[in-house]
Design a protein around this nucleic acid. Structure first.
Length: 277
DNA sequence: GCCCAGGTATAAA
DNA sequence: TTTATACATGGG
């Protein structure tokens, strides 16, 4: 594979398959994805990352997507100093980065994520793109809000998103009408940004938090689902999300991945619950 | 069949 | 304001 190469400062699997993005696929060590209409293949070899794109495209586009301007070693050092368990969590997947995803794609992805599991989320999103996205030749781009706004729930039946179809359409309409301005959410104060997103049917506090973190890189956001609540109660009984400050979202991703990959951490808690019920 | 899945809308207490 | 239930779909 020819293209741009750089030292492996982040880890492909940890970053692309940790529950923040749902459209990257790995085959034989090669990761393929399409972001904002641009296709990319990446692989790690000899402690180097090989990007299948020009240096110009890497500098102007992918560098930002992979958040390469943020010093994650410094963030990890800061977070690790706060708690030994958080230090363990960061050390478990030290190559995670919080992607700077497309806001509209993040919004749809996390609407689809509600009351759903990750493998099926990926399937629905893949069918969504195949049904309504532009064909780039090597895969489908994410559907535009304009295209989705033209749909009825019946039109979306093939993606088998269930009751979430009407929520995707609600989001598309509000965004295309300009009733919800996505670009403003990069800078709008967080409390107002959350309220703004929750005007969309199917967007509650959890989805809004995910969209702000993953779609707008508001890293003080801390998505809190039932799993994370349990993880926080078990692993960080003394801590609240605010304690992690501006890097709360990054801490959350370390904790999410660490606790997902080590369910034994909750064995004791599970037994306790079984015993009391 | 039952339970659960990176929740939310809605109704009822 | 807080708590209970339905919701589409599919895997274990």
């Amino acid at each position: 594979m020819s293209g741009y190469r750089m030292p492996a400062v982040f880890h492909l699997g940890e970053t692309l398959d940790c529950g923040q993005a749902f459209r990257w696929e790995e085959q034989g060590g090669v990761w393929k994805g399409i972001v904002r209409g641009k296709a990319l293949s990446i692989e790690e070899r000899d402690d180097q990352l090989l990007f299948d794109c020009s240096e110009e495209e890497f500098q102007s586009f992918w560098q930002d997507y992979f958040d390469l301007q943020t010093d994650y070693e410094a963030v990890k050092a800061e977070l690790s100093a706060m708690s030994t368990i958080l230090k363990d969590a960061a050390a478990f997947a030290p190559g995670i980065r919080i992607l700077r995803q497309d806001p509209w794609e993040a919004l749809c992805s996390f609407i689809i994520s509600q009351n759903n599991n990750i493998p099926r989320i990926k399937g629905i999103i893949a069918r969504f793109c195949a049904l309504l996205g532009k064909d780039t030749g090597v895969g489908f781009d994410f559907p535009t809000p304009e295209r989705v706004a033209l749909c009825t729930p019946e039109d979306l039946a093939p993606i088998r998103s269930g009751f979430r179809a009407k929520y995707l359409i609600s989001a598309a309409r509000l965004v295309t009408e300009g009733a919800v301005s996505l670009p403003s959410l990069y800078t709008l104060p967080l409390p107002e940004a959350r309220v703004e997103l929750m005007r969309i049917q199917g967007v509650g506090p959890k989805v809004a938090e995910c969209v702000l973190l993953y779609g707008f890189h508001r890293t003080e956001c801390f998505p809190m689902d039932v799993w994370m609540k349990r993880a926080m109660n078990t692993l960080f009984p003394e801590n609240k999300p605010e304690d992690f400050g501006i890097h709360a979202g990054i801490a959350q991703q370390y904790i999410f991945h660490y606790s997902r990959m080590n369910p034994a951490l909750f064995q004791e808690e599970d037994n306790k619950q079984k015993g009391t019920v």
